[in-house]
C-alpha cells in the first residue's frame, strides 16, 4: 500500500481545507494533509511559507478561518492549546520555550500536569494518593530525562543547559504529556552535525515507541533520512507531497526554493 493511497479516515492527524488570514496575507490557503499513525511526516518550505502558522493552527494557538483539523476521531480546530495537549498532541517551539528558571526535572514534571489530578486540597493535606502521584510524576520525569539523554542534568536550571540539551529537554517535556503525535518545530535548528545525528537517533526511537511525529525542518539531510513522507508549503499552499526522494526532484518544489527562470 502506498502512503498516498491511504484514506483520510485512517490518518492520525488530518487537515482539511485549512485557511488562515492575517490581515491581507493568506498565511495558509486551503491546506489539506494527513499524517498516518506511526509515520514521521516532514513539513518543509521556504522561509515564510506558513509552516509555523500551520503548527500554531494545529496546536490551538490560532484557530483556522476555514477548514477542520482532526486527531483520530476528535476535532482539534477550535480547541484551546491545553485541550489539544489533553487530546494527545504535544509540541515544541522553533525558538526554545522552556521554563528557564525551573530545573530540567521540574520542566518535565510540569509536562505531567495534564495526566495528573492533585488540586489545592491534595497539595495542602498531602494524603497517600497525592504522595503516590507526586512520586510517580518524579519517577516518570527522571525516566524521560534519561530517555532523551539529559538525565545527568536533572537538577540544573533549564537555562543553564547547552543548546542541544535544551532542545532535548523540550522534547522530554512534550513526551511527558503522553502524546499520540509529537509536533516538532525545527528541532535541529542551530545544532552541529553530531548533535543532529543524536537527534535523528532520538526521533527514530520515539517513533519506534509508538509516537507519530510531525516535523518542520530546514536541514535537508535530516528530512531526507528521517521522514517517510514530506509536504512542501509555499506561500501558504501545499505544492507537493510524497516520499522525500520524489519531492526533492519535483520541478515545482525546485522552483519554489530556487526561484523560477524569469
Amino acid at each position: 500500500m502506498t502512503p498516498s493511497a491511504k484514506a483520510d479516515a485512517d490518518m492520525l492527524l488530518a487537515l482539511q481545507g485549512v485557511s488562515k488570514q492575517f490581515g491581507g496575507l493568506a498565511a495558509l490557503s486551503d491546506v489539506s494533509l494527513g499524517v498516518a499513525q506511526g509515520e514521521i511526516y516532514g513539513l518543509i518550505g521556504p522561509n515564510g511559507a506558513g509552516k509555523t502558522t500551520l503548527f500554531n493552527v494545529v496546536t490551538g494557538l490560532y484557530s483556522p478561518d476555514h477548514g477542520v483539523v482532526r486527531l483520530g476521531e476528535t476535532l482539534l480546530s477550535g480547541c484551546k492549546p491545553h485541550e489539544v495537549v489533553t487530546r494527545g498532541l504535544a509540541r515544541t517551539f522553533q525558538n526554545i520555550r522552556l521554563f528557564a528558571n525551573m530545573t530540567a526535572l521540574e520542566n518535565v514534571m510540569v509536562g505531567r500536569h495534564v495526566r495528573t489530578q492533585a488540586g489545592v486540597l491534595g497539595a495542602i493535606f498531602r494524603g497517600a494518593t497525592t504522595r503516590a502521584e507526586e512520586s510517580a510524576i518524579e519517577r516518570r520525569a527522571h525516566e524521560l530525562l534519561n530517555y532523551v539523554g539529559v538525565g545527568t542534568h536533572a537538577q540544573r536550571l533549564a537555562r543553564h543547559l547547552s543548546y542541544g540539551d535544551q532542545r532535548r529537554l523540550e522534547i522530554a517535556r512534550a513526551l511527558a504529556t503522553d502524546p499520540q503525535l509529537l509536533a516538532l518545530d525545527e528541532p535541529a535548528a542551530g545544532m552541529n552535525a553530531i548533535e543532529t545525528a543524536a537527534l535523528q537517533e532520538l526521533l527514530q526511537r520515539v517513533r519506534a515507541d509508538g509516537v507519530t511525529i510531525l516535523l518542520i525542518e530546514h536541514d535537508v539531510r535530516l528530512v531526507m533520512d528521517l521522514c517517510d513522507r514530506v509536504a512542501v508549503l509555499d506561500y501558504g499552499k501545499k505544492i507537493a507531497e510524497g516520499a522525500p526522494s520524489t519531492v526533492r526532484n519535483d520541478p515545482v518544489v525546485i522552483e519554489a526554493y530556487l526561484g523560477g527562470a524569469a
Binding site: F93, R97, L98, A100, V110, H113, A118, T130, E133, T177
Partner: peptide, 21 residues
C-alpha cells in the same frame, strides 16, 4: 505541588505552559 509548579510555569512562559497542557 502540582499546582505550585503550574503557577511557576505560567510565570516563566505562559504560552509554553499552555502548550504543555
Amino acid at each position: 505541588s502540582r499546582i505550585g509548579r503550574a503557577w511557576v510555569a505560567i510565570r516563566e512562559d505562559e504560552i509554553a505552559a499552555a502548550a504543555t497542557g
